[in-house]
């Protein structure tokens, strides 16, 4: 159970203010989508959560403690590109997570422990839908399969927080819908919070429990540098999605066996008997 709390966070590059006084609290197991126009600092914000960059002022707390100054195993990440290692096979990529954790000198596992880790890795690979591709190199995988692999690799370490930087931005819509199903299933199954940067509003509303929109309030050229982005919208998705549960109102939401929750622009699906439908209720 990991709560993230961001206190009065500022990020400046020289004179350029990028993020301005961001205050946010993310509940444990939430799935937060960060949206906003290009260059509004949402990726910078994610990098600060990752400790790839550091806040100029303010602080980020995880479960009440300041985040580590460099990336660590508590926070997994999937980037839009270059998230997997091209010199390792699919199995090798996922196995690497276990090897790096358990063999600080050689970086390799042997014998029984290796077989056990390999089993875990194979199960995870099957879970993300890459069964049969264990011995392929990433270059032989399509973009969607590479991102599935990146997810498996990130989840192998069981991070408390999973950070996604436009992970599905380069995929075509069909593939993206498939991987959304997977993403939801993983979020439901794993004990983690997810923070995702996306520029696709539909994706944000399909997946997230909460949507944060960053926006620069002042964009005139002469004042743009001195005013950073702030939180313009903070939307809780309704009906509430709770990790690991099926949402009773719609029959969709959480659980991995439901393939789709309708996107915002999809035709409404029949939601069955509703509470405002007394006729049906009595029937």
């Amino acid at each position: 159970m990991t709560a993230i709390s961001v206190r009065h966070l500022w990020k400046e590059y020289g004179d350029q203010i990028v993020l301005e006084d961001i205050c946010l609290d993310f509940a444990p197991r939430s799935f937060v989508a960060l949206v906003g126009p290009s260059g509004c600092g949402k990726t910078t914000f994610l990098r600060i959560l990752l400790s790839q960059e550091h806040a100029t002022r303010g602080e980020v707390l995880i479960d009440g403690r300041p985040i580590a100054p460099e990336p660590d195993a508590d926070r997994g990440v999937v980037f839009q590109r270059y998230s997997v290692f091209p010199h390792l096979t699919v199995l090798g990529n996922v196995l690497l997570a276990a090897e790096l954790a358990e063999a600080p000198l050689s970086g390799r596992l042997f014998g029984a422990r290796r077989r056990q880790a390999e089993e875990e890795a194979r199960a995870l690979i099957a879970e993300v839908g890459l069964k049969g591709a264990e011995d392929k190199y990433p270059a032989a995988l399509s973009g969607g399969m590479q991102q599935r692999l990146a997810l498996a690799q990130a989840i192998m370490r069981k991070p408390k927080i999973l950070l996604l930087d436009e992970p599905f931005g380069a995929l075509d819509p069909g593939i993206r819908a498939d991987i959304h199903v997977l993403m939801k299933a993983l979020w439901n199954a794993c004990e983690m919070s997810v923070v995702m940067v996306t520029h696709d509003l539909r994706e944000a509303f399909t997946l997230a429990t909460r949507i944060i929109a960053f926006e620069r309030r002042r964009n005139r050229p002469e004042e743009a540098a001195r005013y950073g982005a702030t939180v313009a919208k903070d939307i809780e998705v309704w009906p509430k999605r709770i990790a690991g549960t099926r949402n009773p109102a719609t029959g969709v939401g959480g659980s991995p066996d439901t393939p789709h929750s309708p996107g915002r622009d999809d035709p409404a699906t029949s939601s069955g008997t509703g509470r405002d439908d007394p006729a049906l209720k009595t029937a």
Binding site: P71, G76, Y82, S83, H87, L88, L100, L105, S106, Q153
Partner: peptide, 25 residues
């Protein structure tokens, strides 16, 4: 750079990053 970040999020030390990520590539 993403690869080095990714390796760190998998808990690798500088030595392991050199051994398992940089050297083979």
């Amino acid at each position: 750079h993403e690869q080095l970040i990714k390796a760190q999020t998998m808990g690798a030390s500088s030595w392991l990053i050199a051994l398992r990520v940089v050297l083979p590539q």
